[in-house]
Write a protein that binds this DNA or RNA. Sequence first.
DNA 1: TTGACATGGTGACGTACGTCACGATCATTA
DNA 2: TAATGATCGTGACGTACGTCACCATGTCAA
Lengths: 204, 204
Amino acid sequence: MKSIETTFEKELKDEIALLPIVELKANSVVLMENSYVKEIPILLEGIIKVRKTDESGKEIILYQIYPGESCILSITACLNDKQCNAEAYVEKTSKLVMIPANKVKLWMEKYSSWKQYVYNHYYERFDELLGLIDAIAFKHVDLRLLNKLKEHQLKQGNEIEITHQILAKEIGTAREVISRLLKQLEKENFIILERGIIKIIRTL
Amino acid sequence: MKSIETTFEKELKDEIALLPIVELKANSVVLMENSYVKEIPILLEGIIKVRKTDESGKEIILYQIYPGESCILSITACLNDKQCNAEAYVEKTSKLVMIPANKVKLWMEKYSSWKQYVYNHYYERFDELLGLIDAIAFKHVDLRLLNKLKEHQLKQGNEIEITHQILAKEIGTAREVISRLLKQLEKENFIILERGIIKIIRTL
DNA sequence: TTGACATGGTGACGTACGTCACGATCATTA
DNA sequence: TAATGATCGTGACGTACGTCACCATGTCAA
């Protein structure tokens, strides 16, 4: 998706410029499950992850929000005056603009660029969720790990900074499983493992 | 969700009344994966299922569309001029109104009841998809089968007309697995199995 | 320096469930 | 009436992967 600068028309950017910028520390919860939504975040810096947690504490990452993007689940809850059905938290310290819920509705009428922004989010997130369903329904964990590694490679390059634990949660499995599979990939000379770092040395 | 009668304002109902009604036979594909969307269906009678199919032919039902409802994936594709990323087909012979894609966009501005209808679909379908992810990520097949049976019970009563094969596809597993689990439930006196029918005789 | 955590490596074990391979019935059509 | 296809039952088998139980490091704060 595009940056706020190029996406929105001038008057909308002016309105947004008037809104407060919030800085959140790592692991802060942006949006709680089953709560009503009063503000919609647009992410300026950092990463937000949206997760679903099981009663037993197992969790899976539904999708990630990058700078310039917003949280479609919040927007949906807001447009319908309903609760939200997943949890969003910031992975690294992040900066966000918080938009009051009532503006979100207003802007849908007032600014066609906002409307298009929301429509686009619906498309992209649906696509991601369908991809996730496809993955967990049909793909084995080893393949999903490979895809996840490639995904991180696209964003971080060949030296990926991540722990096995976080990878496991992104994929929705146990840490030991990931550790074992990664070790396997290391033996096959695809990657080199270091504490908190995965170096990719051959095309996955 | 509600019926078209009560949901829409008069002028919109009048517009819809002018559109052709199509009757589709069982297993017709309403909407193909990766195709551009020219018409949005509103279902009048019957059932539409939206599915994702694996290369190997395995499939899972994403959600079902009942009378009065529409297909949010079509709408999303349409609002973004993009292809659709799943396949919809009719389960039983069904009647639908087909709305030209350009009207869908127009109506978002013109009729607030239509806008609300679409917003509501987004909320409901997201909720269902998140529920599905939760289920396939965390729940075992036996539990998912129980839930699916309850779901059918709500719609059809205690005598559910369905084959093991279809149940398997709805859940995304193999027929044998479902047959075995159902047999187990029969042994435990929860259900009675007949060809094409599952009778529920005790609270699941 | 010394705990206290966070990270990760690895063996052992159980099991849910996917797959193959049959056969037995029922239903529909030629 | 024979034949063909849909539906269902069931045994056998393999295996991916979740879980438990440790231990070995590295890191950071007190």
